[in-house]
Every structure is written in structure tokens, then in C-alpha cells.
Amino acid sequence: MIQLEHITQTYTDPSGNTFQALKDVSLEIEDGEIFGIIGRSGAGKSTLVRCINLLNRPSEGRVIVNEHDLTALPESELREVRRSIGMIFQHFNLLSSRTVYQNVALPLELVGTPKDVIDKKIRPLIELVGLTEHVDKYPSQLSGGQKQRVGIARALANDPKVLLSDEATSALDPETTVATLALLQKINRELGVTIVLITHEMNVVKQICNRVAVMNKGEIVERGNVIDIFARPQSETTKALIGNVVASDLPESIIERVRSARAARSSHEEVHLLRLSFIGDEVTQPVISECSRAFDINFNILRGTVDDMQGRSLGTLTILVEAEADVYEKAVHFLRQRGVNVEELSDVQ
């Protein structure tokens, strides 16, 4: 288990001004799970993940990994414990003068591991990440996705119990991102490695994580199971992150329909772009049609999906509603009373 207890990180600039990158953050991550930490740029998520292996030593608080209080260890013992914590970087950090094999083998070479032991260890790792045919190539001969796979294999060289992934997919195209996340899931499943994944993309969290913590301005503003966070976000930060995903997924033709509806609305009507979400059995209930009949209100469905997340169904609808204010409020209340989460999206203007 990873336990972060009251972590605060304060920086002082040359002029003596102080800035708190982390503010009294406490967090527990269970063995064997894939845990996401998400937030916008500057939220403090990368600073926080670097506290887990003490690459960033917090100003206050304790970091406990597998029952070791890293903040209390002398440097010699800390180095030993760090070997059980692998790290994957956004920009790969490969040595251009070394082959795939040599890059993956580097952590073992640095601790004096015999060559025959290295070979027995490294070749299966290269096979695990799907780079057997590229074992003697140099980084300049690899694609971005292949470079990241080298970084993943290298991070696994010391048999880590924890794998930290700091924006590991943000430099990759969407197709390669999906493949890389599938590889991380395979590693988690087959090797039992706990993965802590830092990202600013809700789609990444949605695909791979069991639980997630949402950060804003150095604090955790929400945490929980991914499906619950997606279905019923509580903080404004989380709602905005999910709303950005929905809005960015809408085709331009639909966005134009939204704009046209708003431009053509009558003086007594309001136009609302909503995201409705349902969990489990709610997905199969006819609540939309019931609401439409009850309040004589039309729902223009723009997009709908049903996803399977951790064995549960999550349904989402993006809809356009034109109605008078009092009718709209009654309809929203009706939906929420029946377990539907209703969010207004403001990202499409």
C-alpha cells in the first residue's frame, strides 16, 4: 500500500516569495490497483507523484510505501527501497547511444548485476512489451509508441512493486495511447504491479483506472471509483474535465445545431446543452420518454454511449433542451429523482 499523509510542498523563489504546490494532501493507494491522479496543468499532480519515490521530498508530511516510511530513511536505505518503484516518463528519457536491449538493461548494470542474469531478465521483458524484433535498434529508429515501450520495460527491470506513470501517453497519438494503456493493464494483471497514473486526460482515466483522485491548485478536490466519478461528479473541477471530453467529442455539425438553436430561441425559452449519465440498471429504464410525456418537453439527443467500466454499465447522453425556465427546472428535478445525473455543459458556445 502507498500512504501519503498530510503532504505539503512549499517552494521559495530567489526573491523570497513562497508558493505551495501541494497543500496537506492525504491519499491511500491499494496494492495491485491502477490509480489515476488527474488535473489540469499546474494542479500539482506531477509534484505529488514524485513524492511517492521521494524524487521530490515534501516540505511536510510522510510517504509510506510497502510499510517503509521513505521520509525517515537514510539515503542508503532510500536508494534500496526506490528500486521497488519504477517510473515511466512523458518524453521517454532513453539514451540515444544505446540499443533497446542496452536501455532496458541499464538499471541492472548500474547496480552491478552479472551479464548472464541481466540477459535472462531483460529478454522476457522486451518480449512482454512487444519489441523482440527491435531489440538491437536505437531510439532514433523507433516510433514514439515503441520508445515508450522501451521506457516501460526499463521501469520493470528491477521487479518493482509500484510503477509510476507521469503523463506517459500525452506525447502519443490516440491509437498508440490505447495500445500503451492496454499494455499497462496487462502488466498490472500479469505481474500484479500497482500502477499510479498521472494524466490530464479523462479518457485515459476512463479506459484504465480503478479509482481516481482529482486535483486542483495543489489539493485533492474529489476521489472515488472511476465509474462513480464519471456518472456523478461532485466538484466543479471534475465536472469541467468531463465536460471538456464531451464537448470535444461533438462533431462540428452538431455544435452548429447547438449554436443555431440558441440563436433562434424565443424570448420565453431557454436552450440547454446537457450531459445525462446513468449507472447499472438505470441504463435500461425509459426515464427520458417518461420525462418528455410528463412535462411536454422535447429532448434532442445529440450523442449517446454505453460503456462497460469495471463490470458495470455507464450510459451517457448529450442532449439539447429548449423549454421555459420553470418547465426545465421541473424536468431536471424529475430526472434526478430517478437516479439520473444531470450536468449542463458550457463549453460549446
Rank of each mutant, 00 (worst) to 15 (best):
D31I: 10
I242N: 00
R259S: 11
V214F: 05
Q185D: 10
L108Q: 09
D326N: 12
I88W: 01
K217Q: 09
L128D: 07
T238M: 07
I301F: 15
R98N: 09
E344V: 10
L94Y: 10
S289K: 12
N244C: 10
L163F: 05
L27R: 07
D119C: 03
L184A: 02
L110R: 13
V226E: 00
S165K: 03
E219I: 02
L184H: 02
P286C: 08
L106M: 15
I187A: 01
S140C: 09
Q310V: 01
V81D: 01
Q310E: 10
V321W: 03
T284E: 11
P251H: 10
R149G: 12
R336M: 13
I319A: 14
I227E: 00
Q148Y: 06
V117T: 13
S292H: 02
R50E: 08
V212N: 00
Q285L: 12
R303P: 00
G218Y: 01
A72Q: 15
F92E: 01
P14R: 10
L55F: 15
I195Q: 00
I227Y: 01
S97E: 15
E222R: 00
I122A: 05
N203K: 13
Q20H: 11
D296Q: 11
A43Y: 02
L274F: 09
Q285E: 14
I2L: 11
D31C: 11
Q90A: 10
V135D: 02
E322S: 12
D13A: 02
L197R: 00
M87Y: 09
R265P: 08
A264S: 14
A213D: 00
S292A: 14
L54W: 04
R223G: 09
S260G: 04
H6M: 07
E60Q: 14
R338N: 11
N158E: 05
V214D: 01
T71D: 08
G243K: 04
T169D: 09
T113C: 15
D296N: 14
R293H: 11
V342N: 03
A182M: 10
I37Q: 00
I297M: 12
D308N: 12
K217N: 07
A240V: 04
I255C: 13
I126T: 07
Q141Y: 06
E109K: 15
L70A: 11
P14C: 02
D173I: 08
F92T: 05
G144Q: 06
K206D: 00
S346E: 13
R265W: 06
H333N: 10
L22V: 02
M87D: 02
D31M: 13
L156A: 11
T47P: 03
Q141P: 05
I118S: 07
V162T: 11
E282D: 14
R262E: 14
G130V: 05
N203P: 08
N225S: 06
E222S: 07
E60R: 15
F89V: 04
V221C: 05
